[in-house]
Amino acid sequence: MSAAPIHLGGERLMLDPAGVLHWPARHTLVVADLHLEKGSAFAAAGRFLPPYDTRETLSRLALLLRRWKPARIIALGDSFHDRHGASRLPPTELEALHRMLSGIEMLWVLGNHDPEPPEGLPGQAAEEVRDGPLVFRHQARPPASRFSALAGGEVSGHFHPKATMPTRVGGITRPCFVADGRRLVLPAFGAYTGGLDARDPAIAGLFPRGARLFLLGRERLFSMTAAPTGQPALTGTAPG
């Protein structure tokens, strides 16, 4: 496994091919859109998805905790699929979560799916987290005007970006990071999270001068560039 370094707001960050971000200077692991208990949310609506998504997501997260040994985790919102998600955690998963987070500072950034702090779980909840030159929020904030630049850097989730890389046998689609020097959007980490094409105006509009995409691979990332915007809208629905 090899992580890729990028610089954002002057900070050196590591992009992990599993779809998470590590900030070595602050011993911080950043993860977006866990959507825990999405399966049970669907089950309540009459669609019995396999009830293993939380277990699957947490076991992948546990692996990353062993890899990076962070002192702090920032979850960039939509950590639960709905506002009652935390209360539906099965006992084994709840216990696993407590065990995983012991000795780690946990910051729950609130998202549109989980606008309230998760009950009964360790950690602090916040609308956004500022640390040094970086700000961590659920959804990227478009610049107020095209002349106002972000000071520092912004790290966010929400959009579940994915991208298709053309290869000699056709396109291959993977979840991806989207970045320019000021802004970084993380792919969704949850087991049942689909994606939105990074060319969609909802994402591309955040990167008017183009971006670099990092597609997730098994052992490494594959990078390609995204054109500056100005392309017509093709598909319009942003995932929640």
Partner: peptide, 9 residues
């Protein structure tokens, strides 16, 4: 698939 991505990149 990963090999092809590497090649395209």
């Amino acid at each position: 698939e990963d090999a092809l991505l590497a090649e395209a990149e």
